[in-house]
Design a protein around this nucleic acid. Structure first.
Lengths: 234, 234
DNA sequence: CCAGTCAAAATCGTATACGGATGTCGCCGA
DNA sequence: TCGGCGACATCCGTATACGATTTTGACTGG
């Protein structure tokens, strides 16, 4: 897999700010930055051995990309509202069926093989009951097919809300009941890719998104009940 | 109309960079910056009476928003490729039918009245043959309904590609044949809004986008033939 | 012991400065 | 006269520094 930049083909010399931004984005996407963490430019600068400017640059860019939120005291993860999450499910239903259809028609054997590996990993991890690994494998599967979306604008539109999806995903993953649903959904999607069946891919992802929404709503309900129980017992 | 910021409710003190960015964006959207113009941070800084930092900040933000392109020698208008334009038409067909359907169901009387004004302006300008005014009115119509999209995430996804749409629109507007098509399309869409007819709104915008794509392809073909003519006569 | 006030720390936004890369222009030779 | 080469100008990225604002924490008075 070659490194592909956002909009250009020749990467002469990525600036420090760019490098830092990429590293931070990786951490954000891997969930290494918690809701309570505050990212401060001076700290980032010290870590990377540069001045505040490239660090600030990276932070401001991440804010603009929607990955962070600027506060009066450092940069933090944006607080995603319940409503926003429902909006994003709606948006996903518009974009992703077409995206996977295009992928099904254009996927190269090498990409297919890479995806197959993540499916196997997820299956193994589910049997072993390793939540963390199921999560990682499913994330790699998703990132894999998104990277294969041939319509660049469509791909970028999908990637915009990836962090929020990631957050929701982390919530629903806490209930192991959802693990087989996710693995099965991914498997069906993969089979559609392998068969170059664009229609099946669309149908599967749509069903998958609806299932994800239901799982999210269940998780929210469970959390609310839990809070109520705690309040009652106190 | 109250001033609503991108993501927050309280505007304590917009930074210089923010102000400059807004001013430059206005110029870009009004077409005051040509394809050959190079925006340089020192010049911007001098114009606004600040240092390079806020100017650079504004420029980099505009780059990230897709309004500008960073070169080794200043910031310029991005060169949108033919392929990218076709991709965006595809994306529009996915997002905008749903968006206008939601608008049709949720539009407030005040917003409707504002849109009605732009329709009237466009009709008048078409009769008068004033390309510039038709363009402006149609732009205000589009911005008007986009602002009324209740799903914030969906709205932002649409706004992301607005500059590119704007560029294409400017190209197709050069042929007055397209003016009545545009005005009629907007009128049909407006009627659907007025009748709260979500289905009709979806259908109209979809047809409108297809017409837009055809007009774009015709404009490209016409341009190519023109270039050929010029080459032959030379 | 608690509340109010004020000072200090933290952090952001901006200013100024320097080095490096890249494009441009003029000069020189064929 | 035209092409190649080198010095200069331009502009970007980054470093360092300073003032403003907001939060935190301690100190004092009730």
């Amino acid at each position: 897999m070659t490194i592909v930049l956002a909009s250009d083909q020749t990467a002469v010399a990525p600036s420090q700010g760019q490098i830092i931004r990429d590293v931070l984005l990786g951490r954000l996407q891997r969930g290494e930055i918690g809701l309570e963490d505050r990212l401060v430019d001076t700290a980032i600068a010290a870590e990377f051995g540069v001045s505040r400017m490239p660090a600030r640059d990276a932070l401001k860019r991440l804010v603009h990309e929607g990955y962070l939120e600027a506060t009066t005291r450092g940069f933090m993860l944006p607080r995603v509202t319940h409503n926003e999450i429902l909006e994003i499910f709606d948006l996903r239903r518009l974009l992703e069926p077409r995206a996977v259809a295009l992928v099904a028609q254009s996927m190269k054997p090498a990409e297919l093989t890479a995806l197959e590996g993540t499916i196997g990993d997820a299956r193994g991890a589910t049997r072993a009951g390793d939540t963390e690994l199921v999560f990682k494998a499913s994330e790699r599967f998703r990132n894999g097919w998104i990277a294969a979306v041939p319509n660049v604008s469509l791909r970028q539109a999908i990637q915009r809300y990836m962090t929020q999806v990631q957050a929701v995903r982390m919530l629903t993953f806490r209930d192991p009941v959802n693990h087989p649903l996710i693995v099965d959904g991914n498997t069906r999607l993969f089979d559609a890719f392998a068969n170059r069946d664009a229609v099946a891919a669309s149908d599967h992802i749509l069903r998958f998104i609806y299932e994800g929404e239901r799982a999210y709503l269940n998780a929210v309900k469970a959390e609310a009940e839990e809070a109520q129980q705690a309040a009652k017992s106190a």
